[in-house]
Simulated scan of single mutants.
Amino acid sequence: MRDNIKISSSHWVLIIALLAAMFACYQLLEPYINSIILAFIISLLMFPLHEKIEQKLPTHKNISAFLSCIVLTVIIVIPLLFVLSAIVQQGSVLSQNIYDWVSHDGIQTAFKHPWVTNTLNWANHYLPFDAVSPQEIAQKLAKFASSFGTRLVGISAKILGDATNFLLDFFLMLFVLFFLLRDHDRILSILRHILPFSRSQEDRLFEEIEKVSKSAVMGSFLTALAQGIAGGIGMGITGFPMLFWGTMMAFASFIPVVGTALIWIPSAIYLFFTGDTSWAIFLAVWSIVVVGSIDNLLRPLLMQGSNGMNTLMIFFSLLGGLQLFGLIGLIYGPLIFAITTVLFNLYEEEFAHFLDNQDQS
Rank of each mutant, 00 (worst) to 15 (best):
A142S: 14
F144K: 01
A142V: 01
R151Y: 10
A157K: 08
T164F: 09
S146E: 10
K158L: 15
V153N: 11
S147L: 14
F166W: 15
I155W: 08
S147C: 01
K140T: 02
G161F: 06
A163C: 05
G154C: 05
V153F: 08
A145I: 04
N165H: 05
S147W: 12
A157I: 06
S146V: 08
S147N: 12
S156Y: 10
F144D: 07
F148L: 15
L167A: 15
A138Y: 01
S156A: 15
V153A: 10
I159D: 00
V153L: 11
L141G: 06
S146L: 11
K143V: 05
T150K: 07
A142T: 09
A138L: 00
G154E: 04
T150E: 12
K143L: 14
S156R: 01
G161S: 12
G161R: 04
K143E: 11
T150R: 06
I155A: 13
L167G: 06
L160F: 08
F166A: 14
F148T: 04
A138S: 13
S147M: 09
I155Q: 08
D162G: 02
K158R: 12
A142Q: 13
G161P: 01
S146Q: 15
F144W: 14
T150D: 14
S146W: 07
I155K: 02
A163W: 03
K140W: 10
S146M: 10
K158H: 09
F144G: 15
S147D: 12
S156C: 09
